[in-house]
Design a protein around this nucleic acid. Structure first.
Lengths: 241, 241
DNA sequence: CGACACCTTGAAGAGGTTCAAGAAATGTGG
DNA sequence: CCACATTTCTTGAACCTCTTCAAGGTGTCG
């Protein structure tokens, strides 16, 4: 909730290559620094924005981990994604000027607040930024296609395998281990994202452990056989002959 | 595949309010006409673009009806959406400069080809166009959230009810009946979109007919009780007490 | 240390799938 | 314009995956 004065500029930020365009000249870089007017800390369990909130900015995650959820009238909600450092959230709010989902921090987090009007202004002047904004939105559309594929045609084991592979791949791109990860979300949140009940998520984890594919201690997961996971994703929708 | 010289300009097109921004002045309108360099006819069953194709343009549907599908290695594919006149497709291609899904015409169609570089150029100069492009992409993201909700947490009857309501609502916005529609897609394509098998789609239609909610003759559907459909969507994920 | 949230596992049950057969509609070629 | 092939749709019965309900275990935080 609290805005802070900036200490680190985009041009010096080690996440720059994740949330900002590449190949800018000195002048453009300076003007980009201008984009992030404030930072905002979000404590674990709190919302960055909620369904219905007025839209005004996109948020680049500096640290921490978020989930986004869409609500159904009757109380339940669906997790639409998990976001980590370097990723940009808030795109859902552009179309109607109001957010249509909740963004909740799953661990203490800090985001860069990028006023959207300013993004539009600047991207009229910096072609690379314009292109970058378009790519970020297109990437989100393509990501969601993947989730639709997962939800529409995969079985429980495939879904969880695909989920784990996707997580480690993104973590690895941020310098973390390729084989070890700490889940920031509950089984229920994983289940919501994957269209499964938490018990099914738990059972499927247990099955993977039995098969020697992963080690699981609560939220600590070690992938022992990445190829096996990949195989589960690739081949299970072929019927066993 | 064949490009044609333009006869109708965007500024005169009756679909303008669907695919173009509102509130432009005379000068801006003229420059927008410049955007649609060519039209393209796509016969039923043919692709407008395919997975892997180089991305170069967005397409505004003038007439006809499309489905978009993402392919899985092992042959099967997932329908990610159905698109009708006035809607813009091709957004998936921006991020990687290549399309990641197929767009297939389900009936003879004609699209306006809008070169994307030109869109970017123009939207740097016309604020309303810039905002419009952002909104179109954001709208697609929000739409996909809805599909994720459907696939992740709804049961077969809810899914089909939501699907029918969505279709008639969009058709009605285009001047068609609120209660009657002709499905342009097969049961299998509906099933793929909804994460169900074609038999389940067929059975669920039959159930709706039994319950007097709709009339179905092949692909002709008449909605007899729209409220009942809405009720199915709203209440079924509340457990029966 | 005790309360609470989270996770695991078992057993029974339901919703959707699979397999199969036949009917209806559509398209094609003579 | 009709006969035939093909695609699409419907319906039944058996099966399977995932869910539901329930209980107990594990970890965490004040």
């Amino acid at each position: 909730m609290i805005s802070q004065s900036i200490k680190v500029a985009c041009s010096n930020c080690n996440l720059r290559e994740l949330c900002m365009p590449l190949g800018l000249n000195e002048d453009e870089l300076k003007r980009l620094d201008d984009l992030v007017a404030t930072r905002r800390k979000v404590e674990r369990g709190n919302s960055l924005y909620r369904n219905g909130d007025k839209f005004s900015a996109l948020y680049a995650i500096r640290t921490g981990f978020f989930k986004t959820t869409v609500a159904v009238e009757d109380g339940r909600d669906q997790v639409t994604g998990f976001q980590m450092a370097g990723e940009v959230i808030g795109l859902d709010g552009i179309v109607s000027e109001h957010h249509t989902c909740d963004a909740v921090a799953l661990e203490d987090a800090e985001v860069c607040v990028m006023n959207f009007d300013r993004i539009e202004d600047l991207s009229r002047e910096i072609n690379a930024l314009q292109r970058h904004v378009h790519k970020i939105m297109s990437r989100e559309i393509v990501r969601e296609h993947g989730v639709m594929l997962l939800l529409g045609s995969m079985r429980a084991e495939e879904r969880l395998a695909a989920f784990l592979l996707n997580l480690v791949q993104r973590l690895h791109a941020r310098g973390f281990s390729q084989s070890e990860l700490v889940l920031r979300m509950t089984r229920e949140e994983i289940g919501s994202y994957l269209g499964l009940k938490l018990e099914t998520v738990s059972r499927t984890f247990s099955k993977f452990v039995e098969d020697g594919i992963v080690e699981v201690k609560q939220r600590h997961v070690r992938i022992l056989n990445s190829d096996a996971l990949q195989l589960i994703v690739n081949t299970q929708n072929c019927q066993p002959s």
